[in-house]
Write a protein that binds this DNA or RNA. Structure first.
Lengths: 327, 327
DNA sequence: ATGAAAGCGCTAACAT
DNA sequence: ATGTTAGCGCTTTCAT
């Protein structure tokens, strides 16, 4: 059996209440008793039971995190940002993968409530507002947005625009945009933005669909050049898809970037390691996670938020899958 | 305020105890009252407070998971396996990244205890046995082993051997083994095993060190061919490192697999997507995670384990970074 | 078959 | 400055 606050109290020759006071630095405590208590705690290696604490205070030190799929490298980066920040502030994470499934999101939200989480960070598309207000717990959206909730995300329109412009500047004339699932908002936004720029520029543009997953990317890649053999520029919806497309380009004897240029989205770690290095639009995933955590803690501590929405800048990272030009 | 068991009791016109009974299918309950309670639960959308439950029973529905670094694609695969299995059985995950740091591992173990977790899955090298027995909670090691604890891992010796043999069969004569950090046991084991095979075969073999991370891989890759320019075969400690090396090979004008063959380890998702496709030793990560979860639940439910250690098979996955031979 | 009451470990009023 | 008491929401004897 773990040591309880009573054990400590007995050891120190005081009451449980006193122990609680020194533990929480609340109320008075004579320096001597304080020391006695601290000694007893040390001696018994006592750690307060968070569950009991949580039951009484109706709030835990737990924070819920919902991500679509931790298996997609973009999300672990977010998660680490969240975790590292929260951890330093004494909070821990209950984590759940939703696979973008409403049902699973709800299921986790439910669980979070049952465990008295004090806050939630979530990458979900349509927050179930009744549910959320029901929980009555601060939430911040990550990589997703909705008008009324705090959110941290990267500038998708700028990202989409940047990708298209850089591609244009580097001379591609027949560009295929790989569009991800339109239900995933940020992915759709970057598509729209790229598409607009390309259209206005008057180049030839194709739209080709792909899932965001590894298998999906691989599958769609295999038929890209059957549909659009003259593609000389690819704007991919994320880096995974970009890498798959780059593979297919090379496999079909095309040179990258000479014959086909490719720009990805996200800047996941692997993008730097593949050959040729993948040019991409960087989303500052780790920082996004940190920022979301920071905002969440502010809300938890009732501090006022300067802005509900925090948009982080994206950045064009040029590597070797595009033809560098003097700028 | 969330609805409590008393609200339900009042609504159903019974006592809290009765509600509890129907909730847990324990003790008697007349069919009529049972129905009344169920209706009330439905009507009030009542969900029992897991924290209160956990406090009384001294055990939660939470399971702790410690991973070195979720940012390394091998671990999310494990994590998903664990999560998906546990989830189906009503358990949730508190997750923590340790960065292989003893201090953080202990920190999380502590947290887990404070939250009354009923079990732990951990990828840690030296379980702090005093601590662990202190928690008095079942644990299963994942991707790591120690004599006395249940563990799930892939056959590292076989993996190392396979990689070396396949490389030999495919004709490389001057092989560089990229050795990861020797403190990480499985990584060390695969190295030893490969090394032995290569030595016995009498080919020229170099050993070159690298970290397992993206940055580490990239850094060490950049000087590989300065040290061993005549390398015609690379055995990498994991796929990330393999991809980095493959990049460097191509960057320095070497053809893969014609001039240099490369075999990785893990078979992370991206390995299929890079060009050329990376031949590798597959560890069944997702299945490992599932298996660990399964074993943990068995322990939690006091069932007997057939074997303490569960070793899963590895497999050589041949793609295009090696020269296929008729076999 | 059901209810009353105690208690899981902790904290916060309230006394002293 | 410190102790006593009640109670967070639940489960489980023990009565009835």
């Amino acid at each position: 059996m773990a040591t309880t606050i009573r054990d400590v109290a007995k050891e120190a020759g005081v009451s449980a209440a006193t122990v609680s006071r020194v533990l929480n630095n609340s109320g008075y405590a004579h320096e001597d008793t304080r020391k006695a208590v601290l000694d007893a705690i040390q001696k018994l290696n006592y750690r307060p039971n968070e569950v009991a604490r949580s039951l009484y205070k109706q709030k835990s030190k737990l924070i819920g995190l919902i991500l679509p799929d931790i298996t997609n490298p973009f999300f672990p980066a977010l998660a680490r940002g969240v975790e590292d920040y929260l951890r330093e502030h004494g909070y821990r994470l209950i984590i759940g993968n939703s696979d973008e499934q409403l049902e699973q999101e709800i299921d986790y939200l439910d669980t979070f409530a049952q465990h008295n989480v004090v806050g939630i960070v979530a990458s979900i598309n349509e927050p179930h507002s009744d549910m959320l207000s029901d929980l009555n717990v601060p939430i911040v959206l990550l990589d997703r947005t909705v008008e009324e909730l705090p959110a941290v995300y990267a500038d998708q329109f700028e990202g989409g625009r940047l990708a298209a412009e850089k591609m244009l500047e580097r001379g591609s004339k027949e560009i295929t945009i790989i569009r991800g699932p339109i239900e995933v908002r940020p992915v759709y936004q970057r598509f729209v933005s790229s598409f607009q720029v390309l259209r206005q520029a008057g180049v030839k543009v194709h739209v080709f669909d792909s899932k965001l997953s590894f298998e999906g990317a691989s599958k769609s890649a295999s038929s890209l050049f059957e549909f659009y053999p003259n593609t000389d520029g690819i704007l991919a919806c994320n880096d995974i898809v970009a890498v798959a497309m780059m593979n297919e380009a090379q496999r079909t004897g095309r040179k990258v970037p000479e014959d086909v240029q490719i720009i990805g989205f996200d800047d996941i770690s692997i993008s730097e390691l593949v050959y040729p290095g993948l040019s991409t639009i960087r989303q500052p995933a780790y920082e996004m996670g940190e920022k979301a955590a920071e905002i969440l803690l502010k809300k938890i501590n009732q501090q006022v938020l300067d802005d509900l929405h925090c948009q982080l800048p994206v950045q064009f990272i040029e590597r070797q899958s595009t033809r560098k030009v003097g700028e």
